[in-house]
Design a protein around this nucleic acid. Sequence first.
DNA 1: TTGATTTATGACAGCGCTGTCGGTAATTGA
DNA 2: TCAATTACCGACAGCGCTGTCATAAATCAA
Lengths: 344, 344
Amino acid sequence: MPKATIDDVANLAGVSIKTVSRVVNREPNVREQTREKVENAIAQLNYRPNKAARNLASHHSHLIVLIYDDPSAYEIPSAGFIIRMQEGALRACRKANYELLIHPCRYRNKNVAVELKALIEQIRPDGIVLAAPLSNVPRVVRAIEETGTPLIRVSPGKTDGDPLYVSTNDREVSCEMTRYLASLGHKRIAFIKGHPGHKAVGNRFRGYLDGLEQSGLAASDELIAAGDNSIRSGEAAALELLERRDPPTAIFAANDDMAAGVMRVADRLGIKVPDELSVAGCDDIALAQQIYPALTTINQPLSQMTEAAVLMLTDSQRKKKKPDSPTIVPGTLKLRESTTAFAN
Amino acid sequence: MPKATIDDVANLAGVSIKTVSRVVNREPNVREQTREKVENAIAQLNYRPNKAARNLASHHSHLIVLIYDDPSAYEIPSAGFIIRMQEGALRACRKANYELLIHPCRYRNKNVAVELKALIEQIRPDGIVLAAPLSNVPRVVRAIEETGTPLIRVSPGKTDGDPLYVSTNDREVSCEMTRYLASLGHKRIAFIKGHPGHKAVGNRFRGYLDGLEQSGLAASDELIAAGDNSIRSGEAAALELLERRDPPTAIFAANDDMAAGVMRVADRLGIKVPDELSVAGCDDIALAQQIYPALTTINQPLSQMTEAAVLMLTDSQRKKKKPDSPTIVPGTLKLRESTTAFAN
DNA sequence: TTGATTTATGACAGCGCTGTCGGTAATTGA
DNA sequence: TCAATTACCGACAGCGCTGTCATAAATCAA
């Protein structure tokens, strides 16, 4: 099967190679009739443009690199997150006719910034999607920016007014969850805060406060406990909350792991979920559907976020201008079995 | 930061660009002294060879494509598998200075073969790693072979004498597990067979029979149950086995999900694992460590398998000859809490 | 109809490397 | 010592496309 080149197509169609190039790249200024001739020739010869040649001549690699924290560095099963991010990025790449290169790397590794820079200088991708938590590491962000490669950050903590990022509406959707719990008749809705260093979970707490206010409920320190995102800390926080004089009838945890901890403690204390206690989490990790009762939570639209990130990159390439506002992909409530109405 | 080209390096080092190229590509016949001059110049200018140009001139893409079944097509959390496969492939790619492109695709999709062919013709990777279960679909394998791109299959079912694959020693290691159980004093070791269409689990059954024989135990239909790889089928099989007159003291399931089903049933029946019943699985999925007691199982060296696959590809590229034997990466027993000695 | 635009197409020069091959310098063997 | 190697290095021609620009054809305005 001798591969056809652009010359073969040009000959067969009776046009110049440049015209073939125009057809292939959907450039304007080609007569409809000419276009058809060329397309027929392409089909007939099963012609596929040579990427390397195209890249070399056009100074574009048609490559997007997705950089994320390497899960194999830890024992935690963050695999689901990564698959979902890859999914979205791949979807966008296919749409825009780019390829996706994945690059897990170790967050804590001191050299990570230098290594990334070297990688980028070699590959010369047309764009980079940098996922959390790496998107929060100034050293890394700076190193990538130094290469001059367009960069979109996913769920960055601080943005400094830079619009080149995509994130979700943690605060708004947490507010919505709180209002939902209130709408079920709950008056004492507790919140378990997450790890203080984690920006997103801070927004969730603010959303919780918003929700209370919008529901006409007063916030109270009695209803707030601190956790660190781990199951264990969720257990401790739940224990603390449930043993107070006037325990909450609903607990909203800043992430699913802590919510799972709450359910575990409730089980131990003989408190029935959801009849005696509603529990809600955040993130919609795989566990949320596996535990019993299935956890009401907020889905993190990771896949849509990376998809949006890649599209920002490819779009700005076409339009030759940077986007001037970030993309916010809204999360949605996943109402499952762990929450129910509370009759006062 | 004006990117340096090979000409800049050549000028600075006072040699020809060809010599620079030789140094960069570690080709022979460069004097040590010259090499150093060039390397200094490279370092000084922070020169990185342009991939596109190199690919175009060398007719190599320095790209490996990893093709696997798209997990998002189903609800099952096969994410862990995929991450591990990617891990191994990435490790090998870095060693050999290749890039990895991932390509999930839908197993059941009728067009998958045609689409893959188109993809490959566009990208022109230097090699392809095709993971199970796609590695068992003749239509897909044929389509890829038609492109002439070197292909290594991971865990293929049938091999037809073709050595271009890597797999694990399912049979041997299952035998080992059986012998291990026997060595713990178990005389009645039951086996739950997996889905009949799944080749690997068939080998596991054979390994089980080998193990019984080597341990001087007789195989018996009384000790064999059929499953379909699901948790539910594991439960059914366990129920069947445990309610027989002379129930087994150890159950070895052809995969972890079924083993988890066994544990669940044992719990319901009030049978203590491992004291009254030892349970062993196969695959070492994430669940195996999460359940209580932690499941003794066989680890599937997925990551090493894809690593080996990529290395077969890159090595054969260097040596310009195909490997003449497959790579077998041995699995290993993961002895955890669900198995213990049985005092007769 | 004629000149002024606009649209469509092609000629040509590279993009930044690698493969080939030929030439010169260093090394070997007798 | 001198050929016969062998080690080292460079000139040169592309790889298969795209960008630029010149040119031809079509369209338009008056």
